[in-house]
Amino acid sequence: MSTRAPQEHPVSLLGGVLSYLVPGLGQIVQGRIGKGLLFMVSLLGLFHLGQAMGDWKNVYIPITAGAREDERFFEPKNQSRSERFANLHHNLYQRWQYLGQFWIGIAAWPALWQYFDMPVPADESQRFWRNLQRAPSEAEINNFWVNSDKTPDLGWIYTVIAGVLNILVIYDAYAGPAHPGDPREPKKDKQPQETAA
């Protein structure tokens, strides 16, 4: 009688990196297409739903560290990229949610793009892309939160949940599932004892 042995999953750094970039991509490349699509649709859907619930203003890195106190109510966007890089940990401390959102991969990179003041479309017709994951001004934040219900609050929680769940997905792509076989099946190492004739 043969029992189905659990399939050993080789460690795959490429799978882990791909699943970081796009949730589920590592699993798809490894041939676990159904699981990969489940991760991709679920996590990217959850992340973007969360952003939409927060009016696309809840994934960003603020620029507060290094700014003078009176500048914080305006736009302290006059820092150089190297200054922003040096202040990144201070700014992430002000907006710790991004540390969870970051793990969703490329979908959270526009916040870094905006933080480092990289070029964005100047055209007014592409306003959505120009402002995607840009840190809103203090006045914008106050105006939005005062005039909204609890939905935006739930929105940023969705984005953080999606990012943190993707850490599990990255690990699954890197090292395989936590239980490669069926825990209900008998273990292989139990050999029947030989009886002396």
Binding site: Q7, R32, K35, L38, F39, S42, L43, G45, L46, I161, L165, L168, V169, Y171, D172, G176, P177, A178, H179, P180, D182
Partner: peptide
């Protein structure tokens, strides 16, 4: 969503 994603990281079947 959370149950499905978490469980899919535990098993392959």
């Amino acid at each position: 969503l959370i149950s499905l994603v978490y469980s899919a990281t535990r098993y392959d079947r």
